[in-house]
Simulated scan of single mutants.
Amino acid sequence: MDGYMTIKETAELWGLSPRWIQTLCSDGKIDGAVKFGRAWAIPSDANRPKDSRVTTGEYRNWRKK
Rank of each mutant, 00 (worst) to 15 (best):
D2Q: 10
D2T: 04
D2V: 06
G3F: 05
M5F: 10
T6F: 07
T6Q: 05
I7C: 07
I7H: 00
K8M: 09
K8W: 04
K8I: 07
E9Q: 15
E9M: 13
E9Y: 04
E9G: 03
T10C: 11
T10I: 03
T10D: 10
A11S: 13
A11E: 04
A11T: 07
L13C: 06
W14S: 08
W14M: 10
G15T: 04
L16H: 12
L16N: 07
L16I: 11
S17C: 03
S17Y: 09
S17W: 04
P18M: 02
R19S: 14
R19C: 02
R19P: 00
I21G: 00
I21L: 00
I21Q: 00
Q22A: 12
Q22T: 13
Q22N: 14
Q22I: 04
T23D: 10
L24N: 02
C25Q: 09
D27Q: 15
D27K: 15
G28P: 06
G28A: 10
G28V: 11
G28H: 13
K29W: 12
K29P: 01
I30V: 09
I30T: 07
I30M: 07
G32D: 14
G32S: 11
G32M: 12
V34T: 08
V34D: 02
K35Y: 04
K35N: 08
K35D: 08
F36T: 03
F36R: 13
F36M: 10
F36W: 04
F36V: 06
F36N: 11
A39V: 09
W40K: 01
W40I: 00
A41D: 05
A41S: 12
A41V: 01
A41Q: 15
I42M: 02
I42V: 08
P43R: 03
P43I: 09
P43A: 05
P43N: 06
S44F: 06
S44K: 15
D45R: 05
D45W: 08
D45S: 08
A46N: 05
N47R: 14
N47L: 13
P49R: 02
P49G: 04
D51K: 03
S52Y: 12
S52E: 15
S52G: 03
R53D: 05
V54F: 11
T55D: 13
T55P: 00
T56P: 01
T56Y: 06
T56F: 06
G57M: 10
G57K: 09
G57H: 11
G57P: 09
E58W: 12
E58I: 10
Y59G: 09
N61K: 12
N61V: 06
N61M: 09
W62E: 10
W62H: 05
W62Q: 08
R63T: 01
R63G: 04
K64I: 08
K65E: 11
K65H: 02
